[in-house]
């Protein structure tokens, strides 16, 4: 979904979004980030805007096969970095990043003009939003019976009784 097909040698801009394993110690996360950036520059890329990895709760548990066992992770350090590189090198870069043992999941996106001009700073926005959050999003999709998603997801709903009561 992110691989280009054009054979031209012009630099194309990409964004790499990644999750660092939560088992990595806080101090080492910056090192992992630096390793990724080095991989990019080694492939001849130029770095652009970025956001350093910060702890973040995932929307669902990601399963990863590590050290012979399947392990589940529900939080990770999410970061992203933009860069421009020759399109021919991206596939190889993608594999290298996937091979890195500290990365839980990653995604390389080809940027369109609009996206290039408007980087969205995720952690910054989350911080700002955390300060001023008064409205719950449930108001937007106000379907009367299921007004409380959070309660439903937090408690084990083997019986649907709790939802009906609300």
């Amino acid at each position: 979904m992110s691989k280009e097909t054009m054979p031209a040698a012009e630099a194309q801009s990409y964004e790499l979004a990644f999750h660092v394993l939560p088992t990595v110690a806080e101090g080492e996360v910056a090192e992992v980030f630096q390793t990724l950036k080095d991989l990019i520059t080694k492939a001849g890329g130029e770095l652009g805007v970025e956001e350093a990895p910060a702890r973040f709760e995932l929307a669902y548990e990601i399963v990863k096969h590590l050290e012979g066992r399947n392990r589940k992770f529900s939080s990770a350090y999410f970061g992203w970095v933009r860069f421009t590189v020759d399109p021919a090198k991206v596939e190889h870069l993608d594999e290298e990043i996937g091979g890195n043992k500290s990365i839980l999941r990653h995604l390389i996106i080809k940027l369109t003009k609009v996206e290039e001009e408007n980087p969205y700073f995720f952690h910054q926005a989350m911080a700002e939003q955390g300060k001023s959050e008064t409205i719950d999003l449930d108001e937007e999709e106000a379907e009367a019976t299921t007004a409380t998603d959070e309660d439903a997801s937090e408690s084990e709903t083997d019986s649907e009784v709790t939802e009906d009561k609300e």
């Binding site: 979004a17 996106i109 609009v114 996206e115 408007n118 980087p119 969205y120 700073f121 995720f122 926005a125």
Partner: peptide, 17 residues
């Protein structure tokens, strides 16, 4: 557009809100 306001026809995948 300014940094925090995407044009109406484009949502960044990180823009969870």
């Amino acid at each position: 557009q300014t940094t925090t306001n995407m044009p109406a026809n484009h949502i960044d995948f990180k823009d969870v809100m």
